[in-house]
Amino acid sequence: MILKSLLLKTFYFLLFLLLGIYVTVYLHKKILAHMQSRRGPLHTGFHGILQTLSQTLKLLLKSPKNFLKSQNLVITIGAIISITFAIAAFLLIPLTGEIFFINVEISLPLCICFIVISNTGTFLSIDRTGLNTNKILGLLDRISTTIVFSVPLFISSLGPVTFASSFNLFEIVKSQGRFYNIIYQPLSMIVFSVTCLLLWQRLSLDVPSKNTYLNIDYLSTQTGLNLLMFSISEYINILSLSLLATLLFFGGWNGPGFLHPIIWTIIKTFILQVMFLFLYTVIPKIKGIKRKINISLAFLSSLSLLNLLIVIFVVLYLKPIFNL
């Protein structure tokens, strides 16, 4: 009986995840195209709604024949690590107070850890078939991005944790019953969303023609299942990061009662994703380890530490007085 309900739950969650990814990929394409005064996919299905499906199937059909060749095997292991931890991170996040997969006491830090580990899966994708050394530069860039920007991501998430005095996501959302965290700690929110944006690499499934670093693409010779797994894990990660941002700073499923709580979560997540997309197309990519360290460790981390100090002061001295 328990097993059956667990299986059903898993099925529903994975269905939600797949549908969510499909819709976000399609909408990203369309919104991006309309931002750039284009039409986007148009002739495949109604307004190009089947374009993503056809591209996904294309990658499946194009799987390499020598799948178990040692070089490919390493990349496949990396892809599997990437997608498993991405799904694990997503399953830790509750959608509403009732709809959740699992309730762990330290769900927030665990979730962020899983996202970072899933990003490290791409480290294994070293590919020497083309002998184009530029590709390794792209890979090094990816590694430095992941390592450098995971620090401010973690520190900025500690602000809401201190305010709710719990690592549990339910408790954090419950603490925002009256006012959302964005009012108390806007600094932390800004740091969190900026790091989400910078961690997002946007692999080639969605808009390959506009891939800005065609020549420094570290997955440039990857095809088939490996590439599909990498890009899907990327999308799951951005979905779960924006879900985390809604839970931490925008009150999660709290909202006026005329709508079901899950709809509030979905609406807030969607608005955040569109914001990310808009910023992504306007600001340039940050390249070079020195610039990254300057931005992340010197600027973003110190800002979030300042925020943390303020929150600790408020919790220790002001909270008992004003009964927040």
Partner: peptide
């Protein structure tokens, strides 16, 4: 714009 990675500017 392509090298810097500003997609919108590229299309404009």
């Amino acid at each position: 714009a392509n090298v810097l990675g500003i997609n919108n500017a590229l299309h404009y």
